[in-house]
Design a protein around this nucleic acid. Structure first.
Lengths: 333, 333
DNA sequence: CTGTTAGCGCTTTCAT
DNA sequence: ATGAAAGCGCTAACAG
């Protein structure tokens, strides 16, 4: 591969001159600039990123770590982040932890090794604490998106999971439901805890007793809901509505209900967080608490770049509201 | 950040010894190995990727370039690629060209600059020729997935678009349809050309005249199908079935039909390529030519790494068959 | 306006 | 078994 050395030789000048042309720094006569430019073009010169970042001590690369590349919530978030990064002159390198703390750990190791300028991360869960502390140890700026991690003080962009949760449950109660099941993600994830809190609080406010048989904890990824639905349906008083903590849980629930020929919402109302992406859905019918996924990414990225470039000040938190969108999956009892 | 220099000082040895410990090369006394290890641990040493790849002239990074991160076909492909890469000891850096040749060009520039070991790319279109030639110029191994580019000889993993197309159209004809519209992607993309060829050939085989009014070219990304549906429906003999070249075109078509209260398949049969991802779809109802997206990524990545590590031989082509899955979106006329 | 020197963090080669 | 020297490609700092 051709280096500035090669092109310096051909241009009969020093590597410094070439470097200056490349970076548009210092003062150079128009004549030599032209000459060097031409030769660079002719020889197809491409700067070596490794060499440059070695001396510059910065890479202009930001790492985006999400937990599930197949979830439209995160791909939309990624889009927001990508657009913002590009606007601000950074390249994005994205990786997918698969909701797996170990995999996340490996990626953080790579990220550290590559000395990226910053990390935008949707942590796999509370156990991400360890990796995040490692980032702190090395003073690598990072911003938490979507999920927070107890013990970590940092910039973050979160949804208002509790409020969204309350809105959904409240909506069901107003429709006359009192037997509302709640299928949650792992309690090791902050959003799951907040959503549960919203659920419990709303029941309480409406004097509806909490029924432990109605509450389940699973994962946010794709899974088989049959066992849970089995249990719910075999209860003496099965629920009339299900609040699923996210879109993928909802999918599993719907699939399970359909396989039993149960109709939504006639036989069971369903509400959840996050859309199944407007793009994929032919006929949106889910009642949801919609979160502004794109803005999660966009704002998170801006905060991160602020942090990278700016003077370090207090960690900032941005809480983005979710919006209740009532559609056909929920109905009066 | 701590370097091997720092830990050499602390360990009272040369940087070479430290390097040997890190890489498990050369012969080192167990005693010093232990000592160095401990100090590395204690000082939280993380190797500097840039420095290492500068001297090694390899990065162990592979770039994956897809055209639409929101399309489940590509995210599934990405998963396949990621899994294979990880298994073989490479890191993936993925980027999204947005079906935009200019954006793709920028990414290729970055990829070149980063001296990645190889590139797995679903090219935006025939115009990607220029970038790909640049990769060839620099001897950067790459594998084309999903789409080929005229003028480029290289390893590639493609679907059998023509056969899949024939199967879909044949299926419609067997159901009694003779007025079959075809809404295609851009003719600047190889898969679109093959799909059109399959469409035309199957009509011909069945003595059905080609009606230019039934044929449209749009893009593979999300768009508004209303104008096309308008035209089709205002024809004297509107089609009874639509063959949409990919999943996103189908979505647009379905949305447009629904807004007119037209039912599928009663008022219009629909078939297309690629699933709308099993994960997102509550109730799969599309008749499709399903392509093994995961394998596109997995096999492509394996070929790429073969190429990176192995001796260079003839470019290989892998053609993956698609499978006709008949569901409810198509019915007898 | 341009060049020289030194060094970023690491590994290869050759000594010892 | 360990170390010294040189260099990967580039730029900051200082000269001239």
């Amino acid at each position: 591969m051709v280096s500035i050395y090669d092109i310096a030789k051909r241009a009969q000048c020093s590597t410094m001159t070439v470097s200056r042309v490349i970076n548009n720094t210092g003062r150079i006569s128009e004549k030599t600039r032209q000459r060097v430019r031409a030769i660079m073009e002719e020889m197809n010169y491409v700067p070596n990123h490794a060499a440059r970042s070695l001396v510059l001590q910065q890479t202009k690369i930001i790492s985006l770590l999400i937990t599930d590349i197949t979830n439209p919530f995160y791909t939309t978030l990624a889009r927001g982040a990508e657009d913002a990064a590009q606007r601000l002159g950074y390249r994005l390198m994205f990786s997918n932890s698969d909701e797996d703390v170990k995999k996340e750990h490996e990626y953080i190791e790579t990220v550290l090794s590559m000395r990226v300028d910053g990390v935008l991360i949707a942590p796999a869960g509370d156990q991400s604490l360890e990796h995040l502390q490692k980032l702190q140890l090395y003073n690598i700026p990072f911003v938490l998106v979507d999920r927070e991690v107890p013990g970590i003080e940092s910039d973050r962009v979160l949804g208002d999971s509790k409020e969204g949760s309350k809105a959904l449950v409240d909506h069901l109660i107003k429709l006359g439901h009192r037997r509302i099941a709640f299928i949650n993600g792992s309690p090791g994830i902050s959003t799951a805890r907040m959503r549960e809190a919203g659920y419990l609080e709303t029941l309480k406010l409406n004097d509806i007793p909490v029924n432990p048989d109605y509450m389940f904890e699973t994962g946010y990824s794709q899974f088989d809901a049959d066992p849970i639905i089995d249990k719910l349906l075999s209860l003496e008083e099965p629920p009339t509505a299900i609040f699923a903590a996210n879109n993928f849980i909802t999918l599993a629930v719907i699939r399970s209900l359909r396989s039993r020929e149960l109709r939504i919402p006639d036989d069971m109302s369903i509400v959840c967080f996050d859309d199944l992406d407007p793009g994929y859905i032919v006929d949106p019918f889910l009642t949801i608490a919609a979160q502004p996924a794109y803005d999660f990414g966009r704002i998170g990225m801006q905060m991160l770049i602020d942090r990278i470039q700016g003077t370090a000040n207090e960690p900032r938190s941005v809480i983005l509201p979710s919006k209740l969108i009532v559609r056909r999956s929920s109905t009066e009892i």
